[in-house]
Simulated scan of single mutants.
Amino acid sequence: MDRIALLCTFVLIASSALAGEGLKDREADRLMQIIRDEIAREDCLWRESLAQLSSQTPDEQQKTAGLVAHVCSQKNREQIVQGATTEDLVRHEAAAYDQLWARERAIEIGRQICELKERGHR
């Protein structure tokens, strides 16, 4: 959620700052699509984490989080490496870091789910 809030803040600041320079509709649409994609990924991470991680042990969660992140980040990964050649290491590294972030986010969501369950049983 922090990442989404940060993206929304960026959009508000960037749009007001660039409005004077005549931000093109195409650029604004692209920026809004990036935000929609991030919101969709966060929703997917929560949905899949609830379905997959909530009944697993912490060790199992580590393994499953990678799968959840892979499934939920497919669109982001494709956009990052779109048009990249095999020699374009920067894009492939960016995709790998994005995948790593999504995996860590899935693990954190799993922890939050476990904490919520523990609070509910008290």
Rank of each mutant, 00 (worst) to 15 (best):
residue 112 Q to Y: 01
residue 38 E to V: 10
residue 15 S to Q: 14
residue 114 C to A: 13
residue 61 Q to M: 04
residue 84 A to D: 11
residue 24 K to H: 14
residue 80 I to L: 09
residue 98 D to N: 12
residue 94 A to E: 11
residue 59 D to R: 01
residue 10 F to G: 13
residue 8 C to I: 13
residue 89 L to F: 11
residue 96 A to E: 07
residue 4 I to R: 00
residue 13 I to A: 14
residue 44 C to T: 03
residue 46 W to R: 10
residue 43 D to E: 11
residue 77 R to H: 15
residue 20 G to R: 07
residue 95 A to N: 09
residue 19 A to H: 07
residue 48 E to W: 04
residue 117 K to G: 06
residue 96 A to P: 00
residue 75 K to P: 08
residue 1 M to E: 13
residue 115 E to I: 06
residue 22 G to E: 09
residue 58 P to E: 07
residue 24 K to L: 13
residue 69 A to Q: 00
residue 1 M to Q: 12
residue 99 Q to I: 01
residue 70 H to D: 11
residue 1 M to W: 07
residue 71 V to E: 04
residue 83 G to Y: 05
residue 47 R to L: 11
residue 50 L to T: 08
residue 115 E to N: 10
residue 5 A to L: 15
residue 21 E to W: 07
residue 88 D to V: 10
residue 36 R to H: 12
residue 92 H to V: 05
residue 119 R to H: 06
residue 101 W to V: 09
residue 116 L to W: 05
residue 64 T to H: 00
residue 98 D to H: 02
residue 25 D to H: 04
residue 72 C to S: 10
residue 60 E to G: 03
residue 100 L to D: 03
residue 122 R to F: 08
residue 50 L to R: 10
residue 97 Y to V: 10
residue 39 I to F: 01
residue 89 L to T: 09
residue 58 P to S: 07
residue 30 R to Q: 01
residue 63 K to H: 02
residue 16 S to K: 06
residue 80 I to W: 01
residue 107 I to T: 01
residue 37 D to Y: 00
residue 37 D to F: 03
residue 85 T to R: 13
residue 20 G to T: 08
residue 94 A to P: 00
residue 84 A to W: 06
residue 62 Q to R: 09
residue 120 G to K: 04
residue 111 R to H: 01
